[in-house]
């Protein structure tokens, strides 16, 4: 009756060997291909570094004006612009400007990357049910797997640093981008699509003139969620060497510096709210003429 009380498991030696084999296999793979893979990511590293350099080297008043101008262009709302200004001034006054700029540049690169990768995948998913059946479970795994776990292979492959951190953040943050692109395209009004067909649109024309524009508000919601999730990863990413607001928080946890933790935490919240309001207001503005027409 022994099997009844303890789950009959694989024998210990076999299990150890299995883990060892996989680990060694992966290590071997890393040894032989790590450099190649790392070099594949050099353009990404350059992108990341130049974004960060731009944010840090540009004098703060110019960056502030730039952010406010973008916020205004996207929202046309002075209230939101004023909110952004106050947030930025407070962050600067409490001496968190540099870390904030690092985090913002990381989030920016991560968002761009998520769009560049996520949009085509979302489009393919919307076009084929089979693709959707394949991709969906992968996205489920990406979203539910504790983020620390996939830090391991990333670090093994690429070591500690900005790029592995960025990759970890993108893996965590990209699913909503993909899902909402897929959803947005699938929700496009069948009648309008039929009209495009009737006027002789080819697949490309349908995609760019009908499906993407009509799905844009939904895609925008995906971008918004991607940004929020990337911000949520800031602290975890700092564990593998991503600089920015996450690192002081990490230090604060290790040394029990309560105020340091709170300040940097608040700064993260501040930029999160900023990004959220701006991208949501922009999404709303896109919606303006798109409600189902009356008649």
């Amino acid at each position: 009756m022994d099997w009844f009380y303890t789950f009959p498991h694989m024998n210990d030696d076999m299990l150890r060997d299995l883990k060892k084999t996989i680990d060694e296999g992966f290590r071997g793979f890393t040894r032989s291909y790590g450099d190649v893979i790392e070099s594949l990511f050099t353009p990404l590293q350059h992108f990341l570094i130049s974004a960060e350099r731009f944010m840090l080297k540009t004098p703060w008043p110019i960056i502030t004006l730039l952010i406010l101008a973008i916020a205004y262009a996207a929202t046309r709302s002075l209230r939101i612009v004023a909110g952004c200004l106050v947030t930025l001034l407070l962050i600067g006054y409490f001496d968190m400007w540099e870390d904030t700029m690092r985090t913002v540049s990381m989030i920016f690169v991560c968002t761009v990357l998520s769009i560049v990768i996520g949009l085509p995948i979302g489009i393919l998913m919307a076009r084929s049910n089979r693709m959707q059946r394949i991709v969906n479970p992968i996205l489920d795994v990406m979203q539910t797997m504790p983020s620390f776990v996939y830090l391991i292979p990333v670090v093994m492959l690429l070591g500690i640093g900005k790029v592995p951190g960025l990759i970890a953040v993108v893996i965590y943050a990209i699913p909503p981008m993909i899902r909402l692109t897929d959803l947005g395209i699938r929700l496009v009004d069948k009648d309008v699509l039929e009209a495009a067909d009737a006027f002789g649109a080819d697949n490309r024309q349908k995609l760019f003139k009908v499906q993407l524009p009509l799905a844009l508000p939904t895609i925008m919601a995906g971008i918004n969620q991607t940004i929020m999730m990337a911000l949520a990863m800031v602290v975890i990413a700092s564990m593998i060497g991503v600089q920015g607001l996450g690192q002081p928080v990490l230090k604060a946890i290790a040394n029990q510096y309560f105020t340091l933790g709170i300040f940097n935490g608040m700064a993260i919240v501040g930029i999160a709210i900023m990004f959220d309001r701006v991208s949501q207001a922009y999404g709303k503005r896109l919606q303006k003429h798109r409600e189902i027409a009356h008649g």
Partner: peptide, 14 residues
Amino acid sequence: ETAMVFQKFALLPH
């Protein structure tokens, strides 16, 4: 050779 008009208009809202 053809053009079509639809019951629910099917205009592009954007």
